[in-house]
C-alpha cells in the first residue's frame, strides 16, 4: 500500500468516527425535571450521577436518576457513546452499591415515553432520550 493510500484510509476512518460520534450526540439528549437549576453538566459530572456517586444537585436537592432497560438500543448508545462504558459495567457499579447496602440503583423505566413522563413529574429527576421524542415538560441539559 502506498503512503498516499494509507493517509487517505486513516483520514476516512478518523472522519467517519468523528461523524458517527457527532451524530449520536445530536440524537441523544439528556433531560431533567424543570426544578433542576443546572443548564449544563460536564461529562464527568454526568458519569458521577449515573454511577450513583453524586446524589445531590448544587442547590442540595436529591437527584432522581432514571434509566431505560439494559436491552434498549437508546440505553446502549447512552452508555457506550456518551458515558464511554459498557452497560454491564455500569450495572456492576450499581450492584456493588446495592448489594453492599451503601447505595441505590437508578429507577428503571420500560419506554422513552415513560421516561419523559417520570422525569417531567419527579423533582430533581434526570434521564435521557432520543431527540425526536422530546417535549416541553422537561428541560435539556447540555453536556460539555
Amino acid at each position: 500500500m502506498t503512503k498516499l493510500k494509507r493517509i487517505f484510509l486513516i483520514t476516512v476512518l478518523v472522519l467517519s468516527s468523528l461523524l458517527s460520534t457527532a451524530s449520536i450526540a445530536s440524537t441523544l439528549k439528556v433531560i431533567a425535571n424543570i426544578s433542576v437549576e443546572e443548564e449544563q453538566l460536564k461529562l464527568k459530572d454526568l458519569r458521577s450521577i449515573y454511577t450513583m456517586k453524586k446524589s445531590l444537585w448544587s442547590n442540595g436537592d436529591r437527584i432522581a436518576v432514571f434509566v431505560l432497560s439494559g436491552d434498549s438500543a437508546t440505553h446502549k448508545d447512552f452508555c457506550r457513546k456518551l458515558l464511554k462504558v459498557f452497560p454491564r459495567q455500569l450495572e456492576s457499579v450499581w450492584y456493588r452499591l446495592v448489594y453492599s447496602g451503601t447505595g441505590e440503583q437508578p429507577v428503571k423505566v420500560e419506554s422513552e415515553q415513560e421516561m419523559l413522563e417520570l422525569v417531567a413529574k419527579t423533582p430533581g429527576a434526570i434521564g435521557y432520550i432520543r431527540s425526536e421524542n422530546l417535549h416541553d415538560k422537561t428541560k435539556i441539559i447540555t453536556i460539555k
Binding site: 450495572e91 456492576s92 450492584y95 448489594y99 453492599s100 451503601t102
Partner: peptide, 9 residues
C-alpha cells in the same frame, strides 16, 4: 469483600 458473594458483582 463487600460484594464477594454476588455473582453479578
Amino acid at each position: 469483600n463487600e460484594t464477594r458473594d454476588i455473582p453479578h458483582t
